[in-house]
Design a protein around this nucleic acid. Structure first.
Length: 543
DNA sequence: TCGGAGTTGATTGT
DNA sequence: ACAATCAACTCCGA
C-alpha cells in the first residue's frame, strides 16, 4: 500500500512509542503530520504555552527526520476535510482517545472517511491498556475500587510493550511536499492572544520529557523504593517525578515509563508496590481513565451515576477568594499561588486545597474546583482531574469523609519552618515560624515587626476551620442518610411498588412536618439558611 | 448480619 | 520517627 496519509496529532506528541504513526508510515508514500489548534487547546495560558512548546519540539524532531509538523487552526473536521482534497489524501491516522470530545471527533473522522472513501488507521497508545479491554475483562462495568481494578488487570497480564522509535528511514518513502509555508508553523502565545508572565519551569516537549525521565533513572534506588504518601507536598523542589504534564499530552509514553520501571524493579532487591509505587501511580491514571470512559457525565455531578448528589453552596465570592489565593490560610493560599504561577502542585497539596474548597471548609462544588485546576494545571486531564475531585470531595470512590485535612496542621507536619509559605507568600516571609501557619494569632507587635498586618496586608482567615468542618461533617452525614433512604425506597419499588409508594408518602409527610422540601427525584440536603450562615464573630477583629 | 478493607487524618504517647 | 488510639463511614463478601 502507498497511501497519502494525514497523521492527526492530538495527544501523543512524540516519536517514541507511537505505534499509530509508525504503522501509518509503513503504509504511506507521503505522510503529513498535522495538529489542529482549536479553542479547546487554549483553555489556560500556562497549559497553552506548554502545548505550543511541545509542538515546537515535535516540529524540530520531525525536521531532523526530514519532515515537518503542519499546524492549522479551526475545527478538526473542517480542517481535515479541506486538507484531504488539497493534498489528495487517501488515509487518516490518529490515536484512539476515550474522552467524549475526542471520541466525537473520531466519529466525525470515520464519517468523513466513509464519505470520501478514505482508509483510517488507529489504535490506543495514550494508556497502558485499551480501557475497553479492561471493562470487558471486568464483566462490562468498570471496577470502582483500586484493588478490584488491579485484580482485573492481573487477568490481562502486562501492558503492551512500547514500539520502536521512529527514525529517518521511516520517513524515506514519504518526503515532505515543498509547500510547508509559514502558514503551517507553530504560532506563538501572542498570536493566540495570550500572555504569561511567569518563568518556564516545565518546558513542553518530548525532548524535555525524555531528559527528565533519563535524570530520574539515574537514581534507581529512589525509583524502586518510591512511596507516594511519603513524599512531601511542600518541598521547594518537587518530591515526586513531576512527569505528569508530559504524560498528559503524551510527550512521554506511559508504556515506556512503565516498562523502564519494570526493568529497574527486576534489578532491585525489593521495591514498592501499587498503590504507592511509581508503577502504582501510572495504574491510578489507568484506573481513572477506565472509570471515566464508562461513566456518563463523568465531569459533572448531575446525571453522573457514581457521584453523590449534594446541594453545594453557590458562593462566587468565596470561590474567588480560594481561586485567587486570598483565603487567609497561608497553607491554602501558598498552594494556590504555586498552582497559578507554575502550573504544577504536589498531589497532597491538591488534596489540601480540594478538601478545603469542598467538604472541608467552603462546601463549594467540586466541579468549580475542577474548572480552576483545568485552567491552571499543566497536567490538566479530563479523567484524572474529575476523578480526583470526586475522590477528594467524597462524592465517589472515597467515603471516609470524617477525615478532614486541617489547613493549619497538614502543611506544618512536613515544613514546620514554613519555607514553602515564605517562598510563595513573600508578604508573610518575616513571620516567626510559630505563627506562620496561622498569622492571625500573632500578637500585634509581632505583626508589626514582621511588616505584615493581618486584615490589611494579608487577609483574615475566611472561615473558622473548626466550626466550618464540623458543620460540613453534619451536612455530609445528612446527605448520606437521605441518599440511603432513597436507595432503600428504590429497592422497595423493585420489590413491592405498592408498599414503596406508601413509604414514600409517609416520608414526604415527615419532611413536610420538619419543614423540609419534599424532593422525589433526587434526594439532596437542602442548603437552607441556617447552614449557610457563617458564625457571627468571624472573622475575628484585628487588634 | 458481621467483619474486614479502603492509596496517603489527627492526636497522643514512646 | 514510629506505634497505638481515636472515632468512624461505606462497600463488599462470607
Amino acid at each position: 500500500m502507498s497511501h497519502r496519509t494525514i497523521h492527526l496529532f492530538r495527544k501523543g506528541l512524540r516519536l517514541h512509542d507511537n505505534p499509530v504513526l509508525l504503522g501509518a508510515l509503513c503504509s504511506s508514500a507521503a505522510l503529513f503530520p498535522v495538529f489542529v489548534l482549536d479553542e479547546r487547546v487554549c483553555v489556560g495560558a500556562l497549559r497553552c504555552r506548554f502545548i505550543l512548546q511541545s509542538l515546537e519540539d515535535l516540529d524540530s524532531r520531525l525536521r531532523a527526520l526530514g519532515s515537518r509538523l503542519y499546524v492549522l487552526r479551526g475545527s478538526t473536521l473542517a480542517v481535515l476535510g479541506d486538507l484531504v482534497t488539497r493534498w489528495a489524501v487517501t488515509q487518516i491516522s490518529y490515536d484512539t482517545e476515550v474522552e467524549p470530545h475526542h471520541a466525537r471527533v473520531e466519529q466525525e473522522i470515520r464519517a468523513l472517511a466513509e464519505e470520501r472513501g478514505l482508509h483510517t488507521h488507529t489504535c490506543v497508545s495514550h494508556t497502558l491498556y485499551d480501557v475497553r479491554r479492561i471493562i470487558q475483562a471486568a464483566g462490562g462495568s468498570p471496577p470502582l475500587t483500586y484493588r478490584k481494578f488491579l485484580h482485573v488487570l492481573s487477568a490481562l497480564g502486562e501492558p503492551e510493550k512500547p514500539c520502536r522509535d521512529i527514525s529517518a528511514e521511516d520517513f524515506l518513502r514519504c518526503p515532505t511536499p515543498p509547500d510547508h509555508q509559514l502558514a503551517f508553523g507553530v504560532p506563538s502565545l501572542a498570536d493566540l492572544g495570550l500572555e504569561v508572565q511567569s518563568a518556564v519551569l516545565w518546558p513542553g516537549g518530548e525532548t524535555h520529557a525524555l531528559q527528565r525521565l533519563h535524570t530520574h533513572f539515574q537514581s534507581q534506588g529512589w525509583l524502586a523504593s518510591f512511596s507516594k504518601p511519603r513524599t512531601v507536598p511542600n518541598s521547594l523542589l518537587p518530591s515526586t517525578t513531576a512527569l505528569s504534564p508530559y504524560l498528559s499530552v503524551g510527550c512521554l509514553s506511559a508504556r515506556t515509563f512503565y516498562r523502564r520501571l519494570s526493568r529497574v524493579y527486576a534489578q532491585a532487591k525489593n521495591h514498592s508496590l501499587p498503590p504507592v509505587s511509581l508503577q502504582g501511580q501510572l495504574l491510578w491514571r489507568e484506573f481513572f481513565y477506565t472509570v471515566a470512559s464508562a461513566t456518563p457525565n463523568f465531569t459533572k455531578m448531575e446525571g453522573n451515576p457514581i457521584c453523590l448528589q449534594i446541594d453545594w453552596y453557590h458562593e462566587p465570592e468565596s470561590l474567588e477568594k480560594w481561586r485567587t489565593a486570598r483565603t487567609g490560610f497561608p497553607w491554602i493560599d501558598a498552594i494556590m499561588t504555586q498552582l497559578r504561577e507554575e502550573g504544577w502542585i504536589h498531589h497532597l497539596a491538591r488534596h489540601a486545597v480540594a478538601c478545603f474548597l469542598t467538604r472541608g471548609d467552603l462546601w463549594i462544588s467540586w466541579e468549580e474546583g475542577m474548572k480552576v485546576f483545568e485552567e491552571f494545571l499543566l497536567d490538566a486531564d479530563y479523567s484524572l482531574n474529575a476523578g480526583n475531585w470526586m475522590w477528594l470531595s467524597a462524592s465517589a470512590f472515597f467515603h471516609k469523609y470524617t477525615r478532614i485535612f486541617c489547613p493549619v496542621r497538614f502543611g506544618r507536619r512536613t515544613d514546620p519552618q514554613g519555607q514553602y509559605l515564605r517562598k510563595y507568600l513573600p508578604v508573610l516571609k518575616n513571620f516567626p515560624s510559630q505563627y506562620i501557619y496561622e498569622p492571625w494569632k500573632a500578637p500585634e507587635d509581632v505583626q508589626v515587626s514582621a511588616g505584615c498586618i493581618i486584615g490589611k496586608d494579608y487577609p483574615c482567615p475566611m472561615v473558622c476551620h473548626i466550626e466550618a468542618s464540623q458543620r460540613n461533617l453534619a451536612l455530609m452525614r445528612q446527605v448520606r442518610t437521605e441518599q440511603q433512604k432513597t436507595a432503600e425506597l428504590t429497592r422497595d419499588v423493585a420489590d413491592d411498588p405498592m408498599e414503596a409508594g406508601l413509604k414514600r408518602e409517609l416520608q414526604e409527610e415527615e419532611e413536610l412536618l420538619e419543614g423540609a422540601e419534599p424532593c422525589s427525584k433526587s434526594k439532596r440536603v437542602s442548603g437552607s439558611a441556617d447552614h449557610k450562615s457563617r458564625p457571627s464573630g468571624w472573622p475575628p477583629e484585628v487588634t
